[in-house]
Simulated assay, not measured.
Amino acid sequence: MTLQTWWLYAFAVFLLSGTPGPNMLHVMTRSVELGFRRSLAAMAGCMLAIALVLAASAAGLTALLKAIPGAFEVLRYLGVAYLVYLGIKSWRADVSPEDPAGADMARRNSPMALFRGGFTIAISNPKLLLFAAAFFPQFIDPAQPKAPQFAILVGTFTVIEMFWYCTYALAGGTLSAHLRRPSVKRLFNRVTGSIFVGFGAALLTSRAA
C-alpha cells in the first residue's frame, strides 16, 4: 500500500464516518443524557464491535456468511428489531428529573451497561460486514503481505471513527444545556427516537449484495 493510497483511504473514511448513523446518534444521546465522560463507555463498546467486525471480514467471515442461505437476512432483521426498539425506548423515555443516586438509574447507566449498549448497536448492523468486504479490498495491494495492510486499514478506521464519536459526544454535551426543560427534552427524545426507527426502516428495505 502506497502513502497516496493510504491518504485516499483516510479521506474516504473521514467522510463516511462523519455521516450521521446509528452509532453516532447513540453516542450523542448518551452524551446528552449523561455527559461526555460517561459516554466514553458507549464509544468503547461501539469501537470494539467495529474492530471485531472489520477483523472478521478480513479473516473471510463475510464470504462464509454469504455462502450460508439467509444468514444476512437473519442478521438484518435482528438489526432492524434493535434499532426500532431503541427508537421506541427513546420516544417513551421519562423526561422527569431522576435521582442520580437511585439504584435503578445507577445500574442502567453503569459503565458496563453503557459499554454493552454501544457494542450491541454497532454489532447489530450487518451492513458493516458488507462495507468492509467491498471497501477494504480496493486499498489492498495484492503484491504485498495482506495482514499488515489490513492492520493499517483497521487502525486508521478506528482512529477516525473515534474522532467522530468524540465530536458528536461533545456536541451532545453542549446540547444538553438546552434540554433542561422537560418539554424540550421530550421533543429531543421523540426526534431521536424517530430517527432510530428511520434507520431501522432503511435497513429493512435494503438488500445484501
Rank of each mutant, 00 (worst) to 15 (best):
P22I: 08
L40R: 04
L25Y: 05
N23T: 15
A42I: 00
R37T: 14
N23R: 10
L40N: 05
F14I: 03
S39C: 09
V32W: 03
H26I: 07
L25V: 12
A44S: 15
M24N: 15
M43G: 13
R37K: 14
R30W: 04
P22K: 01
V32F: 08
G35H: 04
R38G: 04
E33I: 02
S31T: 07
S31D: 02
M28V: 03
M43V: 12
M28F: 09
T19R: 06
S17G: 09
R37C: 04
L25W: 05
M28H: 03
N23Y: 09
R37F: 10
A42V: 03
L40G: 04
F14M: 13
T29W: 02
A42N: 07
L40E: 03
T29D: 06
S17Y: 00
L40A: 12
G35C: 07
R38Y: 05
N23H: 10
A44C: 11
L34F: 12
P22R: 05
A41D: 07
M24Q: 14
P22H: 06
F14S: 13
S31P: 02
G35W: 02
V27M: 08
E33Q: 15
P22D: 07
V27N: 08
L16S: 13
S17I: 03
T29R: 11
P22L: 07
T19M: 14
R37N: 11
R37H: 11
L15N: 10
T29S: 12
M43F: 01
L34D: 08
R38E: 12
M24C: 10
T29Q: 11
